[in-house]
Write a protein that binds this DNA or RNA. Structure first.
Lengths: 312, 312
DNA sequence: TCCAGCTATAGCTTATATCGATAGAAACAT
DNA sequence: ATGTTTCTATCGATATAAGCTATAGCTGGA
């Protein structure tokens, strides 16, 4: 069994076609066929069911592919280990970002970063916090940007910034006349929330739990984007809370509806997180510096109170 | 980079000597030298510092070796995947057992198992619960026997038996005259405990916490073996608690000092645990059946109350 | 029935893993 | 110092295996 054979298997599994897989792996189709046959002989099983069109994995084959992916992934991390030592900043770098941070933060640093470090090929994925934790732990992601603290054994956190919560109060709301919000003003039943799975939603629930100890009975409406929440709010369905950076993008005609909190303002802590194995640390440091640099100009709040992003 | 090269690196790292490593890997020394040089060239680093005698790993080398071990481990699990599918029961099988279970349980099933499944080469290690969890997660152990429930994401538990706690009450103790113990009789300050790190100790602490809510002030004495605890107890230093199976080995002249609990007796749950990846499941099932079989004759208790084996 | 699209096989070439023999370097013993 | 032992690197030869081109063989539409 060689790593090359495993890569061939992965390619065929992906393209369900020997000929295409051969092109992708830069060898001829007979080479691929032979190597895969050799592996099948060695393990004494069939990986592919060649009678099906297009070709299919056998039951064992599926498990073989899974394990092959583990091995190939680990083997590709060997180069990272070396780069690490040499201080080389380059190669592919997989970054996860949670949905409520992605649209506002990404445009702020992306160009900046890729100009400064052209040898790094950034691959960015929008993932929720749970997915991020899994994928950092198993080495799929090199780093991620998420709300913290997560207090996870295997994950390091470096705080990028504190992003205050800002109230969006529609006209004719009971809080419209207030100039500054207080946590005590909030009523969870009156706040439009993102749909389940977003940690920003959990943060708000935690915030309200902390302010009054009553249970949470119902969420009137739920949506996946702040834009929708603001529109629903304008329809008189309740107020909502936005992360500060989102308020910068809001339609200027609506900024009059924004209400900040009195100090200390509730805020979420946003961090760059990565595995304690610290592979690609140089790239992580570079990314941290770039993001911290651009954010310094955008967020000036000092006196904040961090709200936990996780349930319970 | 080939898996073979990585195995050579691991061998040299282990033996700190090319010649010995060559013997262990069944190739000649020049072969080893060349392959390792090739890998070093490819990665463009030095793995070994050959100026030192005996040979040493460079700083990068240490990390390379770590990653190489990951890759080689994963690659060896490929065979397990195949065996899994074929229902083959054999190969090496690494089993961890916590210290308070090892001496009583192991002799009960070991011969039995290896007679029944001669193709399995059992490698057994005595490890505490924390070590077991780590080593199951990273694939070092194939399974383990420990006190449960552990409620760990990546670990499956199959209960083998419930083992009641039994009091050992020395003569002239305030509880000597009691025929049956009750949890309320226990006073944590009066109980001789194993040293820190044993989950049986944590279980007893949980038991006493549950019975009366007072804090735990001091542990008068601590030891690593039940034999010592019994001797100390006989010296008048207090009572102690033993897991049921241990009481079967006790000196017959001392069995008069044993006191069982009233039903439901506090007990620990002992399980066979293994990774959710379920590699070598056939072997695990075989092991489960053998152990459950021998234990059925030894433990007849029905009405027990499980005590958590973990701190807090 | 023919053709298009695949995969497998054959025969050959090239690359390389391995070997035995030996050189070279370092540590050790006398 | 000097010979001896111990260890790693280098050399040249060889067997193994990976790769290529050409083509056979299979299968499912037109």
């Amino acid at each position: 069994m060689t790593i090359t054979q495993l890569k061939y298997v992965l390619a065929v599994a992906e393209h369900q076609n020997f000929t295409k897989a051969a092109e992708k792996t830069f060898v001829t189709q007979p080479t691929l066929s032979m190597q895969i046959q050799k592996l099948e002989d060695e393990l004494d099983i069939l990986i592919f069911d060649r009678s099906k069109k297009p070709i299919e994995l056998t039951e064992v084959g599926k498990k073989i592919v899974e394990q092959a992916r583990n091995i190939v992934n680990e083997s590709e991390r060997m180069q990272d280990v070396v780069d690490q030592e040499k201080g080389f900043i380059g190669g592919t770098f997989k970054l996860g970002i949670i949905p409520t941070i992605m649209p506002t933060l990404l445009p702020m640093f992306l160009k900046n970063f890729s100009n400064r470090y052209p040898k790094v090929q950034l691959k960015i994925e929008e993932l929720n916090t749970d997915e991020i934790i899994t994928k950092i732990s198993d080495g799929y992601l090199d780093a991620a940007i998420a709300a913290t603290p997560l207090k996870h054994d295997k994950i390091k956190e470096r705080v990028l910034y504190y992003e205050p919560f800002v109230g969006y109060i529609p006209e004719n709301h009971r809080l419209t006349s207030k100039e500054k919000l207080e946590v005590g003003d909030l009523d969870i039943d009156d706040i439009l929330l993102l749909e389940d799975g977003h940690c920003f939603r959990d943060g708000i629930i935690n915030l309200c739990k902390a302010s009054k100890h009553g249970g949470i009975d119902k969420f009137q409406l739920e949506s996946g984007s702040f834009e929708t929440l603001v529109k629903l709010s304008n329809e008189g369905l309740g107020m909502t809370l936005l992360p500060y950076l989102h308020t910068l993008d809001i339609n200027p005609s609506l900024t009059k509806n924004l209400r900040y909190f009195k100090n200390p303002s509730p805020a979420r802590e946003v961090s760059l997180i990565y595995s304690k194995s610290e592979l690609k640390l140089q790239t992580i440091n570079a990314l941290y510096d770039i993001i911290a640099g651009v954010i310094r100009g955008a967020i000036a709040f000092q006196d904040v109170k961090v709200i936990s992003p996780t349930k319970k």
